[in-house]
Design a protein around this nucleic acid. Sequence first.
RNA 1: GGUCGGGUGGCCGAGAGGCGAGGCAAGGGACUGCAAAUCCCUCUACACGGGUUCAAAUCCCGUCCCGACCU
Length: 298
Amino acid sequence: MRLIVICGATATGKSDLSISLAQKIDAEIINADSMQLYKGMDIGTAKISTEEQQGIPHHMLDLLEVNQDANVAWYQEKARSVISDIHARGKDAIIVGGTGLYIKAILDELNFPDTDPVVRAELELEFATKGIAPLFERLEKLDPAAALAIDKANSRRVIRALEVIKITGKPFTANLPREESSRYPYAKQFGLVMDRDSLSERISLRVDRMWEKGFVQEVEKLLTAGIMQGTTAQRALGYAQVIAQIEGKVTQEEAQEETKRATRQYARRQETWFSRDERITWISPVQNSLERILESIN
RNA sequence: GGUCGGGUGGCCGAGAGGCGAGGCAAGGGACUGCAAAUCCCUCUACACGGGUUCAAAUCCCGUCCCGACCU
């Protein structure tokens, strides 16, 4: 049974390609996009519609309410069990998405130390009242290697490192595997690349289409569904901007421009992330990408 | 034509004789429980020409451009 990954920056055409491939080899698709996990977030995440799915089974889509929060550890476990199921059915699995950490969490032996809401809350309170300095100093004492690797200003990562140390009683760095170890050595990863200008154009077009398709109405529904009670979903690209538009803080034009800009920046971050993984075979979507993938998996 | 106020890096914007404000954009990078998140780095500018001064984006003179008002 095969495991194929299609990754790359947003708007490079991953979904379309994955459908063609799935049809060709009779595979099932697993979403690896952190925001498409949420129900009701369809237009703004460019989620594939039921018709577009063409009958290909899709997994890891629409699993969470907008007032809940996703996290990697949960995703990792769930996605891996989906892979087992698909393989047990004798079919190939295709992972498709742009959330680098999520894909890595499936493929590699990443073991996420547990989280503790009480410990977390204490650390966050300390950060809110005293700032990052005392927290970072403690990290320097308890785990110099981690302090070296994590930037002082990155409070989120400093807090998590301290949380792990507190819970496990071991340094944060000790919890990280030292070498890349693949859980699915047979997995084949493909990355879609596109030059910046073309990508920028596609993003611009896509964002304009979102508003035409009723992005604002979608967000209005999500506001009712409690998107503001969650922490993650409301920060998704475009959603934050539409919320600002609904609140009258920005005009529609500003919201669209801001969404385009933020999406371009996101695409850059995705490229940076994926470029580190040497296992990825890069292909350009303008060329016969489907043939190229079929060639290398057969 | 006259008076006044301005001309600062791709954009916005402070500084008003002497250590390269800052923000945004752009580019590069980091990344193990919020990851479409969080964070780091880079990008030596003062309209032009003279002058004063040890030192000028900052002062003086002239030129050009922009704006407001006056005729």
